[in-house]
Amino acid sequence: MPDIAPERVSTRAAFTDALPELAVRHGVLVVDTDTGSIKPTPGMDYLNVGIAENAAIGLAAGAERWGRRALVCTFAAFSVSRAYEFIKLDVAYPRRRICVVGTHGGASGGWLGPTHHATEDLALMNALPHMRVVVPADAHQAVSLLEQCLRYDGPTYLRLGRKDSPVFGGLPEPELGIPQEVRPGRDIALVATGPEILATALEVADRLAGEGYDAQVVNVHTVDPESADAVGRTLAGSCRWLVTLEEAWTSGGMGAQVAAAIGHRGIPWLPLGVNGFLPPGTHASLLEESGLTTEAVVGRVLKFVTASQ
């Protein structure tokens, strides 16, 4: 079972450090939108098109059409919403081998406010056929999953946080599309995605044990509909309650995909995530406002299971 390490490293920083070598090794054209998240090296094919997300997607799609793998780096709030039509028609529809990287995912934009919060991205990208939607659990997984996205024979969306986030010791090496049981349990399944949320789920499981409930914790680093079936196969056969946790709007997000995949089992489901627009604030305060702290989640889960018995 993984432990939460004392160090904190952002998934965006891990991406910044790992990308140059991986891009050169895999022959990837890197298209940036003036994000400040990429440090180009002499051997890397790099273009910065400025704050022009639509143009970046179109350019990458054209390059891929002529044989080049490509990666587009943007702020998540702008790539997913502003360039959605281009991602839909130029990337997902023809199954281009393009990785769209969205930084500042979820509420990690903090004080930048709702213009820079990306809580709709999981739902929007999940709606696109062929798209793999990837949310690393920590900085280590971010590097591994980045490389897997660059090798994947189709389109991917890699969601990264902005600032330092939890790192987990003993977390298994991720495999695209395969959820990870990080804590076994029989009664309640806590299905989580993203660093802060996985850390909360592990803490909640410890608290629930004191209340007499054996909680399973599943890390879902690939959150698309294709992966949801695999989550269903990972849940304990004796699972009586499903709780999904995500730093995103729950409508159409990870939890909705998982609930749809296991609906035939008739397990009561509690979706926990961001509800509505968030004001400017610290990342921690926005998670607290969304009810995604350990204390708030424990309270809601206990109320849920009591009402369901």
Rank of each mutant, 00 (worst) to 15 (best):
I4D: 07
T282L: 01
D45E: 14
A248L: 01
A236R: 15
T234Q: 11
G169L: 00
A248D: 12
V49K: 02
T244I: 11
C73V: 13
S37G: 12
D90L: 15
W269T: 13
T250N: 08
E173R: 05
A307P: 10
G161P: 02
L145H: 05
H283Q: 05
I87V: 15
A199V: 03
W66P: 01
A118G: 01
V135F: 05
H264P: 09
V298P: 01
N219H: 09
R132W: 03
V217C: 04
E147Y: 04
I4Y: 13
G232K: 00
R97Y: 14
V80H: 09
I262S: 01
G113M: 11
A5Y: 02
W111L: 13
D3R: 13
V133P: 13
E173Y: 04
R82F: 10
Q257I: 10
A52Y: 03
P184Y: 13
G170V: 00
G266C: 02
G194N: 08
E120F: 11
V297D: 01
E85D: 08
D90Q: 15
A13M: 04
P268L: 02
A201S: 02
T294L: 06
V297Y: 06
A76V: 10
V49E: 00
L292R: 04
A260F: 13
S227R: 06
E203N: 10
S285P: 01
E64M: 06
P172H: 05
R162I: 06
R97E: 14
E211S: 14
S165D: 12
E226T: 15
T35N: 12
A92N: 05
C239E: 11
P280W: 05
R186N: 13
T74Q: 12
G212P: 10
A296E: 01
V135A: 13
A14G: 15
R82H: 09
E211L: 10
L89W: 06
F277V: 14
F304A: 03
G281M: 11
L286A: 04
L198N: 02
E173F: 04
S108W: 06
R183Y: 10
E226D: 15
T35Q: 11
L146G: 09
G67K: 02
T115C: 11
H26V: 13
V143H: 05
G177T: 00
H116P: 02
V134Y: 03
E196W: 04
R207N: 11
H104Q: 13
E211H: 15
Q141A: 14
D3V: 11
V24G: 15
V100N: 12
I178W: 01
A77F: 05
P179V: 01
I262F: 02
A199W: 03
R240K: 10
L158M: 04
P172F: 09
F86H: 15
K39V: 14
K163G: 06
V301G: 08
A55Y: 09
